[in-house]
């Protein structure tokens, strides 16, 4: 599909939403990153946002999915799947049919394997580019999106990509709005039966609740008894720093500036 300038007013956005898991209680909720993705889509001007979910439909997951409806939607497309099924074929088919301009997902699911592979698999299957870890969508003009990617340490990177594109949302994206109870109750599920393919490999693995990881021991590797003793008796804070006494403020400032330049923190 060729992007046209005329399409910008009606930017079609599909947000893939999943059922999350509360980290403490383990109850079903709207997944945090997916909710951030919905918030991101809501903040786009002139966008037609559609919610898409592939998964099992039962009481708890329906309650969780209503959380997304409460963010200002009247309906949510649901591709019904059996438990533990591979949702990729169903999603790829649905996206291929709808062919939106922008697909927004979270980085990884809060249930199941949670490998974070789904957006990459979809991008490969549809042949679209993928941008990961988004903090914001700055603008969409003439079929080109300017995106702000979140980097570690609070840094941001600006990217430009031609639509259609799949983006994943980082935890640095704006926090989702609260889900309103009334719209959540009123919203409807538009269920369609998609292709279901079982995930046999997942079924063959041994899955158990995470146990705490062992703490790494501090191993002192010393050739001699003296080195071992020194390592055991040494204070945690070594006093090997350089101390400048009786210097003029300018000399001191120069020394600090040299260190800042070496560490490359001045911009």
């Amino acid at each position: 599909m060729q992007p046209e300038s005329a399409m910008t007013p009606g930017l079609e956005v599909t947000v893939l939403v999943s059922v999350g898991r509360h980290p403490l209680t383990g109850r079903a909720r709207r997944a945090d990153q997916d909710a951030r993705g919905v918030e991101l889509a809501r903040s786009l001007a002139d966008a037609q946002v559609r919610l898409l979910h592939a998964g099992m439909r039962d009481e708890s997951s329906e309650a969780a999915l209503r959380g997304y409806l409460g963010m200002g939607f009247t309906e949510l497309s649901l591709l019904e799947q059996s438990e533990g099924a591979d949702v990729l074929p169903a999603l790829a088919e649905a996206l291929d049919a709808a062919s939106p301009h922008l697909v927004i997902t979270g980085e990884r699911a809060e249930r199941g394997e949670g490998s974070g592979l789904l957006p990459y698999l979809l991008a490969e299957r549809l042949g679209w580019p993928l941008v990961s870890g988004l903090a914001a969508v700055e603008s969409v003009e003439d079929g080109v999106a300017t995106l702000l990617q979140a980097l570690p340490r609070g840094q941001r990177r600006r990217l430009k990509v031609r639509l259609p594109v799949i983006v994943t949302v980082d935890d640095a994206a704006p926090a989702p709005r609260q889900s309103a109870y009334g719209p959540a109750r009123r919203g409807a599920f538009e269920a369609t039966a998609g292709p279901v393919s079982a995930d046999d490999e997942w079924a063959s693995w041994h899955v158990q609740p995470a146990r705490p990881r062992p703490k790494r021991l501090k191993i002192v590797k010393a050739a001699s008894a003296r080195d071992r003793f020194k390592a055991a008796a040494a204070k945690a804070e070594g006093g090997s720093g350089q101390v400048l006494t009786d210097v003029t403020p300018t000399q001191g400032a120069e020394a600090i500036l040299t260190l800042l330049r070496e560490e490359d923190v001045l911009r």
Binding site: G239, G241, L244, P249, G252, A253, A255
Partner: peptide, 27 residues
């Protein structure tokens, strides 16, 4: 803090910060 520091400058912080700001601005 001096024992922990990799570089310690003993002196009046106001003056040193002023000098640092001047140097950075100059650069």
């Amino acid at each position: 803090m001096i024992k922990r520091a990799d570089l310690a400058v003993i002196g009046d912080s106001t003056q040193i910060l002023e000098a640092l700001v001047t140097l950075v601005a100059q650069a």
